[in-house]
């Protein structure tokens, strides 16, 4: 079976959107995170593993997410799989960050 990511020759016959986009803070931070995790001195995540994580996204997410959104979800999957972070501590941290940012924005 063809994977969701395997796009060569697929009938996506739309014009290519050639508009230039500056990288967002989010995109730069995800890229930096992956560079640090894949650096040979740490060797936490290999690029092959990152790709595998991206390829296992459900089709609606693969096409619904931006490029770096796919990456951060793959990084999440791999860090949980490897036991570097636990699902519980990650979920608690996400809620903590959400509350903190909401408080900062109303200050």
């Amino acid at each position: 079976m063809r994977g969701v990511h395997d796009l060569g020759g697929q009938p996506i016959d739309e014009e290519i959107d050639r508009a230039e986009h500056a990288q967002t803070f989010f995109e730069k931070r995800v890229d930096a995170l992956m560079r640090l995790l894949s650096d040979p001195s740490r060797g936490v995540i290999r690029v092959d593993e990152l790709r595998r994580g991206v390829e296992t996204l459900p089709e609606k997410d693969y096409f619904g997410y931006s490029y770096y959104e796919r990456w951060i979800h793959s990084i999440r999957l791999l860090l949980l799989e490897k036991g570097v972070v636990s699902e519980d501590e990650l979920n608690r941290r996400i809620e903590g960050v959400r509350k903190r940012l909401a408080a900062e924005s109303t200050r």
């Binding site: 989010f26 995170l33 997410y65 860090l79 972070v85 501590e89 903590g96 960050v97």
Partner: peptide, 12 residues
């Protein structure tokens, strides 16, 4: 997605 990135980065 943004919350996930911040949370993961802080934990790491």
């Amino acid at each position: 997605h943004v919350l996930l990135e911040i949370a993961l980065r802080e934990l790491l």
